[in-house]
Lab assay of single mutants.
Amino acid sequence: NRKASRNAYYFFVQEKIPELRRRGLPVARVADAIPYCSSDWALLREEEKEKYAEMAREWRAAQGKDPGP
């Protein structure tokens, strides 16, 4: 049972969880929050997504994983 790799979207969703909880939505973990975040993610510009892509690269580097292209 390996841990899933964390991509840019994972970090975006993780950042949104406190806001979703404040709105009273039932989000205990990232998987619960995904349905509420997909439309917001789709509206982000590539420059805005880069922040989360960098977080994912840093996480992979800390895990000793290949950052890929």
Rank of each mutant, 00 (worst) to 15 (best):
N1D: 01
N1S: 01
R2I: 15
R2W: 09
R2S: 14
R2L: 12
A4K: 10
A4Y: 03
A4W: 07
A4M: 12
A4D: 04
A4E: 15
A4G: 13
A4C: 05
A4F: 15
A4N: 05
S5Y: 05
S5C: 02
S5G: 12
S5E: 15
S5M: 09
S5A: 12
S5F: 02
S5Q: 10
R6Q: 04
R6E: 14
R6D: 12
N7W: 07
N7T: 12
N7C: 04
N7D: 15
N7K: 11
N7G: 12
N7L: 08
A8P: 07
A8W: 00
A8S: 08
A8Q: 06
A8F: 00
A8I: 06
A8M: 05
A8G: 11
A8D: 11
Y9A: 03
Y9K: 11
Y9Q: 12
Y10H: 11
Y10W: 08
Y10K: 04
Y10S: 03
F11P: 01
F11Q: 05
F11A: 06
F11E: 06
F11H: 10
F11D: 02
F12G: 03
F12E: 01
F12V: 01
F12R: 01
F12P: 00
F12Q: 00
F12W: 05
V13L: 06
V13F: 03
V13D: 00
Q14H: 02
Q14D: 13
Q14T: 08
Q14M: 12
Q14P: 02
Q14S: 08
E15D: 07
K16Q: 12
K16T: 05
K16C: 04
K16E: 00
K16R: 13
I17L: 08
I17R: 04
I17F: 05
P18H: 12
P18I: 04
P18F: 06
P18G: 06
P18Q: 05
P18Y: 02
E19N: 00
E19V: 07
E19Q: 02
E19I: 07
L20I: 02
L20F: 05
L20H: 00
L20R: 00
L20T: 02
L20E: 00
R21E: 04
R21G: 13
R22V: 01
R22S: 11
R22G: 09
R22F: 10
R22N: 09
R22I: 01
R22Y: 03
R22K: 15
G24D: 06
G24C: 07
L25M: 11
L25F: 07
V27P: 01
V27T: 07
V27H: 02
A28W: 00
A28M: 06
R29N: 14
R29S: 15
R29V: 13
R29I: 15
R29G: 13
R29A: 08
R29H: 10
V30L: 08
V30S: 07
A31K: 15
A31R: 11
A31L: 06
A31D: 12
D32I: 00
D32Y: 00
D32P: 00
A33I: 01
A33S: 03
A33H: 06
A33T: 02
A33K: 02
A33P: 02
I34W: 11
I34C: 08
I34A: 09
I34S: 07
I34T: 08
I34V: 09
I34K: 15
P35S: 02
P35Q: 04
C37S: 03
C37R: 01
C37K: 02
C37F: 03
C37G: 03
C37H: 00
C37T: 04
C37E: 02
S38Q: 15
S38D: 13
S38Y: 11
S38M: 09
S38L: 09
S38V: 14
S39G: 14
S39H: 14
S39F: 12
S39V: 08
S39C: 08
S39E: 11
S39R: 15
S39A: 11
S39W: 13
D40Y: 04
D40H: 11
W41F: 06
W41T: 02
W41S: 00
W41G: 01
W41E: 01
A42K: 13
A42V: 05
A42W: 07
A42G: 13
A42L: 10
A42E: 12
A42N: 15
A42T: 15
L43N: 15
L43Q: 15
L43H: 14
L43M: 10
L43G: 14
L43Y: 14
L44N: 04
L44D: 03
L44M: 05
L44K: 03
L44A: 07
L44S: 08
L44F: 04
L44R: 01
R45N: 14
R45M: 11
R45H: 11
R45W: 04
R45E: 12
R45D: 08
E46N: 10
E46I: 06
E46L: 09
E46W: 05
E46A: 07
E46T: 08
E46G: 12
E46C: 11
E48D: 13
K51P: 04
K51R: 05
Y52N: 00
A53W: 10
A53R: 13
A53M: 05
A53K: 07
A53G: 10
A53P: 03
E54K: 13
E54V: 11
E54H: 09
E54A: 09
E54Q: 09
E54F: 05
E54I: 14
M55K: 09
A56N: 09
A56Y: 15
A56C: 13
A56K: 02
A56L: 06
A56D: 06
A56R: 03
A56E: 10
A56S: 12
A56W: 07
R57F: 05
R57K: 12
R57N: 09
R57T: 11
R57G: 09
R57Y: 07
R57S: 11
E58I: 06
E58P: 03
E58K: 12
E58W: 03
E58L: 08
E58A: 10
E58G: 10
W59L: 01
R60T: 15
Q63F: 08
Q63M: 06
Q63E: 11
Q63Y: 07
Q63T: 10
Q63R: 13
G64R: 14
G64Y: 15
G64K: 13
G64E: 14
G64M: 12
G64C: 14
G64N: 15
K65Y: 10
K65F: 09
K65C: 14
K65A: 08
K65R: 11
K65N: 10
D66Q: 14
D66F: 09
D66R: 12
D66G: 11
D66S: 11
D66T: 15
D66L: 13
D66I: 13
P67N: 10
P67S: 11
P67F: 10
P67C: 04
P67R: 14
P67Y: 11
P67E: 11
P67L: 13
G68M: 11
G68E: 13
G68Q: 11
G68V: 05
G68D: 10
P69G: 15
P69M: 09
P69Y: 15
P69H: 11
P69S: 14
